[in-house]
Nucleic acid binder design. Structure first.
Lengths: 128, 128, 128, 128
DNA sequence: GTGGTCTAGACCACA
DNA sequence: GTGGTCTAGACCACT
């Protein structure tokens, strides 16, 4: 487990998921949480790879997915920048929340539990 | 996407997860939901493989994981049987529910949402 | 788990070992413990199979191994009899004890433990 | 019977047990004995398969069981690594010793022997 | 190059 | 007939 503060967001790595997905996820979540300034520059592929001590290909793959989702924009010769679109951020936040909710709900259903059981679990779980 | 009614549980297959894991998961959930009779025989490795049109080794791998979790018992020359332990079933149900809850909660936290936001989402989501 | 009192010895079955081996082992150990009268008749293959609710082939296989070890003798038309040889019994007892000891010692060595560590374990283990 | 020195542990194969179990057992015991450096990389699936002249799947099965027991960690694209947890190693050592002891004790009981007889056997057995 | 999944098919042990 | 082991070889995901 490693932890890094990169530009304005920090990245923790574990071993249970693909690296590129972790990098991707953490940047995405940092944006959704509003922790990175819109329009700001993020580290170059090489720079981030160096700091995380991982392969540049791995970082690149994460950046490419971010770009596909329109969360980043690459400008030739200048670097990679977070989107300036407030809407895009809200959209991604809603989308990530919805995905998580759907996974949870379908798991509950798979276990034959109803909404109120799920609510009870959520009420009782330790949050922080 | 294929769907099968096997003995007392049905199995759907998609392509996003390993086959053996899907078979495993669906049997596990069927047990947790109490849809399979404790102590009952489940289809033989070859039979289920035939019906799902997958390789017997793939089915066996699922069965072996079930056995490791003590959810099944296999008797060479006789077949594979669901555990008779009511406790084991409750245990697995709790464990699966807890896993799902934890994933959900940590996603919510990653998005910077608090418990009440999560509760609101859960309240509003379409359930059935 | 089933338990049966057969002739002069009782047989417990579990599911972790081949059935024939369990039957074999338990008769062999009963002889070694001196719990069966030398020269006495043991149940026929069919009779024991019926009582244990297992396949006669399974019982037969156990009896065949007993005969191979000269612990039993089959007399045509009369049935199967425990050996009358006191020596044979001592021999089998020593042999079984030695086997168990060897397995234990080699396990201890595989773990890099010396004799005194093994002795300590044996001293401290709950016996009854 | 074949014997190999692989990285820092050697592996002997016989024919009385499943191959994957032998590979598994020997690595497990090597870890328990403290003969492999914690955190170190073990041979790749393919490499070990080549040296032992067995199928890669067979090696993988052993590695996967090690991982389930948290004795190894596998990182896709990088290799398989011994756990860094000192505790885990002690735990596995104790567990293996306990298993061996239990087997021995129950065999002794099955033969009608008491603790002191067992101790006598252990005292007299040739150790090295 | 690494590990992971899946297949097809052989052969064995057990009931 | 059942489950269990092993092989050979394909194809995929990740670094």
């Amino acid at each position: 487990m490693a932890e890094y503060e990169i530009g304005s967001f920090k990245i923790e790595l574990d071993l249970t998921k693909p690296l590129y997905e972790q990098v991707l996820d953490q940047i995405r979540h940092a944006i959704a949480r509003g922790e990175v300034e819109l329009g700001s520059k993020i580290p170059s592929v090489r720079e981030l790879a160096l700091q995380l001590k991982i392969n540049p290909n791995t970082v690149m793959r994460a950046y490419q997915e971010l770009e596909r989702d329109k969360l980043c924009e690459t400008r030739r010769g200048q670097g990679t920048f977070i989107t300036t679109s407030e809407e895009k951020v809200m959209e991604i936040k809603k989308s990530l929340a919805k995905d998580a909710l759907n996974v949870f709900v379908s798991s509950m259903k798979d276990l034959g539990m109803d909404r109120s059981s799920a609510q009870k679990l959520l009420e009782e779980v330790e949050w922080e």
